[in-house]
């Protein structure tokens, strides 16, 4: 939780220099595995392909998904991303995105300490987004594929490659540009 608070403060500090800043929720389903939900932020910077090149951070966890009220394993994903949105200033936009990050699965018991419980995350994604005209809300629907660099048997079993997600963003900051 402490990490999340620090991450939140770090992200808020960007609002001063960002051109566009969106914050929202992320609902994610891994194919054949868990629901993992969480939060998502993305920015585009002044003078750096504003509203086209975005940088973001996502945190999704089964704690707010499959593991709520069940025996599903508790796992946390931390993702940093950069994405390119086509069709600038349009409502409907295709987006390509690359994520890197870290997955940690909490096995809870000492007896499982020696088992593989974490993984480096790298995933390309394809998304489509729709921005509503009259309200500062946009919806992003996407699918990605995690590339597993570990040998078979050396990463957690809950780390599965194909996932789908829905992000709903509220635009906190948006400045018109003359670019």
């Amino acid at each position: 939780m402490k990490h999340l608070i620090w991450t939140g403060l770090f992200l808020i500090s960007f609002t001063g220099i960002s051109q566009n800043f969106n914050a929202g929720i992320r609902i994610q389903k891994t194919n054949g595995m868990y629901w993992e939900n969480g939060i998502s932020f993305q920015y585009s910077f002044k003078n750096l392909k504003t509203d086209q090149l975005y940088f973001g951070f996502d945190y999704v966890t089964t704690r707010w998904g499959s593991a709520m009220g069940s025996n599903a394993l508790k796992q946390d994903n931390y993702l940093f991303s950069s994405s390119w949105a086509f069709r600038k200033e349009k409502s409907f936009r295709p987006i390509v995105r690359l994520n890197i990050g870290y997955l940690n699965v909490d096995f809870e018991e000492e007896i499982f300490e020696s088992l593989p419980h974490s993984a480096f995350l790298l995933s390309p994604e394809f998304l489509v987004s729709y921005a509503f005209k009259n309200i500062p809300v946009s919806i992003h629907l996407g699918s990605g594929y995690y590339i597993d660099f570990a040998e078979e048997g050396h990463s957690p079993g809950t780390f599965q490659p194909l996932y789908y997600h829905l992000n709903i963003y509220y635009t906190l900051l948006k400045t018109k540009t003359n670019e």
Partner: peptide, 19 residues
């Protein structure tokens, strides 16, 4: 369970233990 089972993930045994 084998620690590094290349076919059946050892996470299977964690799931069985929990459930």
């Amino acid at each position: 369970h084998s620690k590094h089972d290349p076919t059946a993930s050892s996470t299977s045994t964690v799931m069985i233990y929990k459930g």
